[in-house]
């Protein structure tokens, strides 16, 4: 424990004796413990349910640990679960999501980083007007732009395809990513940029040889932000793709909320946790960088 005098307490203050089991500590850690349990509970319930057989689910309650651990629900969720139309499980949706996420992440980050770099270091007249529109665009409810984009995608022949969805993700990732990169590049020492200019480096030369190598942390933040965001997307997936190209979140919803057949809760929960696995892994591995990514949205430009 750090010394207790750094803490806001009531009454007369002075250096207090360090007591681990003070009433304050019991209350504080007790509360935090209960809260932590509450937040962790759904994850626990998901895992536990997905490892039980259906008879056990019907008998027991959702919190009881499995008496007989079975991985069958996971296998079924992956390859056999039914959506009402087909019974291919989540695997198709998973691979679709992979095929959507990877190009979307690469494309959106490439475009936004170059864009942010242009805005930070090569400002041209009118650049800020477009940037402001872009940032305000981030607040427009997606529903307003849903149909115009349907028309655009139809015109260029990408409606219903994975490519179309990649384009949509690139467009809607642009505001936050551009802001992120612009702010980061602006914070780099300007002398670097000037020195490179004096040495005769051009736009792309400076970008690839100086800016990118110096900005690995922010690229990591952007990748985390985009992978989780795109993987978790549901609305764009359901609007711009068809049954063959549905991303994982849409297939998951179709599997769990399909009205046909007997509800198999263990398979449903296995499917749910499989879908959540990618963002969860990223979250637990990346730690502080994830927090930085979401905080980026809150930092004003």
């Amino acid at each position: 424990m750090t010394e207790a005098s750094g803490l806001p307490l009531e009454g007369p203050q002075g250096p207090k004796p360090r007591r681990v089991l003070s009433r304050r500590n019991i209350f504080l850690y007790g509360t935090l413990f209960v809260i932590t349990l509450y937040y962790a509970m759904p994850l626990y319930v998901m895992i536990v349910t997905s490892l039980k057989g259906m008879p056990e689910i019907r008998l027991g309650n959702i919190f009881s640990p499995p008496m007989e651990v079975t991985f069958e629900p996971w296998v079924k969720a992956w390859s056999q679960a039914c959506t009402g139309l087909t019974c291919n499980g989540l695997s198709t949706g998973f691979w679709n999501s992979v095929k959507i996420t990877i190009p979307s992440v690469i494309l959106s980050i490439s475009i936004a980083s170059v864009n942010g770099y242009a805005l930070a270091n090569w400002k041209f007249k009118g650049a800020n007007v477009f940037f402001t529109i872009l940032i305000f665009g981030a607040f427009i409810p997606y529903q307003v732009m849903l149909y115009p984009i349907v028309i655009i995608l139809r015109e260029i022949g990408l409606y219903g395809s994975l490519g179309g969805l990649v384009l949509v993700h690139t467009i809607f990732g642009m505001p936050i990513l551009t802001l992120l990169f612009r702010n980061y590049f602006s914070s780099l020492p300007e002398e670097l940029f000037k020195a490179a200019r004096v040495d005769g480096a051009k736009f792309w030369g400076i970008y690839f040889r100086i800016m990118v190598p110096m900005s690995l942390p922010i690229f990591t933040v952007a990748v985390i932000l985009q992978v989780t965001g795109i993987w978790n997307d549901f609305l764009f997936g359901v609007v711009y793709t068809g049954p063959e190209t549905y991303p994982m979140t849409v297939s998951l919803n179709n599997i769990v909320n399909s009205t046909q057949g007997v509800k198999e809760y263990n398979i449903n929960m296995a499917a749910t946790i499989i879908t959540g696995l990618v963002p969860l892994t990223i979250y637990f591995v990346s730690g502080r960088l994830f927090v930085r990514g979401i905080a980026a949205g809150a930092v004003k430009g």
């Binding site: 872009l134 665009g137 984009i149």
Partner: peptide, 24 residues
């Protein structure tokens, strides 16, 4: 180059965000 690099932003801002909103 800077202006070329900003084309995606300009297109998105004007055609999708402003254009799409007005259209709707």
């Amino acid at each position: 180059s800077a202006k070329i690099a900003a084309i995606p932003m300009i297109v998105t801002a004007l055609f999708v965000f402003v254009g799409g909103t007005i259209w709707t």
